[in-house]
């Protein structure tokens, strides 16, 4: 377990690459009422791996857009206006691309690294696990 904890503290990526780490971070974000940021981050990764020829991919893009971008969700509120416009434009023209959520994901990731992740490493949830 010690190795786990050292790895989780190394970077957000190493935390999220580990099943137990991602689960514990999710529990923490649920309590902080911003679990959507993590779900969005994973949804972007999942979307990037999808086949653009599959009709399902457009439906998933629409679902991500509706759930996280076009409302006042915790994700939408943290994204730059230009980033939201870009995604909205892609959706309007139905021009789906594997990288269409990359900028939005990068913005959310930076915010998670600077805020939620730092808070997590000093939280009782993490320290109790230690």
């Amino acid at each position: 377990p010690d190795l786990h904890l050292v790895r989780w503290a190394k970077s957000l990526h190493s935390l999220l690459g580990d099943q137990d780490g991602a689960h514990l971070f999710r529990t923490f974000l649920e309590r902080e009422k911003c679990v959507d940021t993590l779900d969005f981050w994973f949804a972007c990764n999942g979307f990037r791996q999808m086949d653009l020829k599959d009709t399902k991919t457009l439906r998933v893009a629409k679902a991500i857009h509706k759930r996280y971008i076009e409302n006042y969700s915790v994700v939408a509120r943290q994204l730059k206006l230009a980033t939201k416009f870009f995604i909205r434009d892609c959706m309007k023209r139905q021009q789906i691309d594997s990288t269409m959520f990359d900028q939005a994901q990068a913005e959310i990731q930076t915010l998670m690294e600077d805020n939620a992740y730092q808070m997590f490493l000093t939280s009782d949830i993490y320290l109790d696990y230690v």
Binding site: Q19, G21, A43, N45, G46, M50, V60, A63, I64
Partner: peptide, 20 residues
């Protein structure tokens, strides 16, 4: 047809780390 929520959940789950 899967609902929007199911599709989204499936997409999120596909990217979650698997048990080593």
């Amino acid at each position: 047809i899967d609902s929007e929520d199911d599709l989204l959940q499936e997409c999120i789950s596909s990217a979650m780390p698997k048990k080593k």
